[in-house]
Amino acid sequence: MGILDKEFSQSNIVITKTEDLFNWARLSSLWQVGFGLACCAIEMMATSASHYDFDRFGVIPRPSPRQSDVIIISGTVTLKMALRVKRLYEQMPDPKYVISMGSCANCGGPYWEHGYHVLKGVDRVIPVDVYVPGCPPRPEALLEGLLKLQEKIRNESLVRKSA
């Protein structure tokens, strides 16, 4: 944020752009939908736990899509689940973001050829902001994915959505 010189800091005044303020607020408290699909969800939970501590980036699981900002698709999306994932996404308020975690959610993963029941990439039903590769990705990889998403939000504009 653009903070001006000392004379302002003495008087507790901060000058910034509305866009920057909004983006900073949004990227600093991304509440994720409390939702996991497969083995990637175990890594996602590990990321939330004390050792990797997702909360230091303002990410906490919220047990309702209506009060969430980001949904992490952590695992294999079956055709049956895809309809539910789409509904969850539609229930989230704008602005909303999607992290696709792991090979299954990215492209079908090991089920790409013979998985008669698997959606070959969650981006066939909802728009994805960040893809995190791995099978499953380590918590560090998911954290990097989150930082990429924060970077993306930091450069958003109020008048045009970047995604």
Partner: peptide, 20 residues
């Protein structure tokens, strides 16, 4: 029935493309 040996997967299910 997907595990029958002569099963053929559909192109689309509920508007979603099924093959890779």
């Amino acid at each position: 029935f997907p595990l029958r040996k002569d099963y053929k997967n559909p192109e689309f299910y509920q508007g979603m493309k099924v093959p890779y």
